[in-house]
Amino acid sequence: MFSEQLIGNLIQGLVLGTIYGMATMGLSLIFGVLKVVNVGHGAFIMVGAFVTLFLFNALGLNPILAIPVAFIIGMALGYLFYYTTIKRLIKAPELATLLATFAIGVLLEEVIKLIFGSEFRGYNWAVGKVSLGITVLPLSKLYACAGSIIIAVLLYLWFNKTRAGSAMRSVVEDSEGARVCGVNVSGTYALSFALGIGLTMASGVLLTMFIPVGINPYMGGGYTLKAFVIAVLGGLASPYGAFFGGLVFGLLENGSYTIFALIPGVEPFALTRFFSFVMLLIILLIRPTGLLSRK
């Protein structure tokens, strides 16, 4: 009975983990290329969620179609914030970009609150479900999982098979070296930031496909924190590390939830959050460069 429940939850965790992984790739990409920690990460996930909500409720559009829409809006917002804010601060001490991205996050939250209000919202996309015997998976969750994997694979191919991708990798390795090879380094910074934000907003769509409720302007904070834990799990600067970090995190979160639920008198959901931070602390103590990093 318990083992069935655990396996069922782990399957859910694995599916959610692919989405968590995809939702952290943007953060890792921006950190890897620009060495900027995007504290406003979760706010962009939130905007992606609202894009989905708006397209579904107001226009009746399928959430799958919201993925490219959110990605494109994210790219545009990424370029906007890069050229108005980040570009000026890139050589400044790290605190400047931390404050700037924090401020961008607050700005997004308040703008969304102004437009949509602060109540919790959701949408109901009924596309059926699959029964796996042990657990039941709504198709919307499976689509989100498949979407995450496809996007991760596309990003991998883009990185390794295209000129723009190799330029980005070279900037990650050594920006001065990239410059003397003729890479347009400042253009690559802008593209990386825009791409990172685009991916993050697209992940906001995928997350609502998994959890289509609780959409509100302040939903991003929890995702920022989870993304930090996942990014550290995966080695911070590597988008693929982040993807696998997400899988590990999804499994641990859902697995620990099942176990905590056995303890009488505790609220298991609150404990999983505690557990993820204990995990972060332990990883930072043992392997400060990340569990999955090369060094």
Partner: peptide, 15 residues
């Protein structure tokens, strides 16, 4: 130097 340490010699030259 400013090489790309995690790329092969060939990849460095290709860059």
């Amino acid at each position: 130097k400013h090489l790309f340490p995690n790329m092969s010699v060939y990849e460095n030259l290709s860059m």
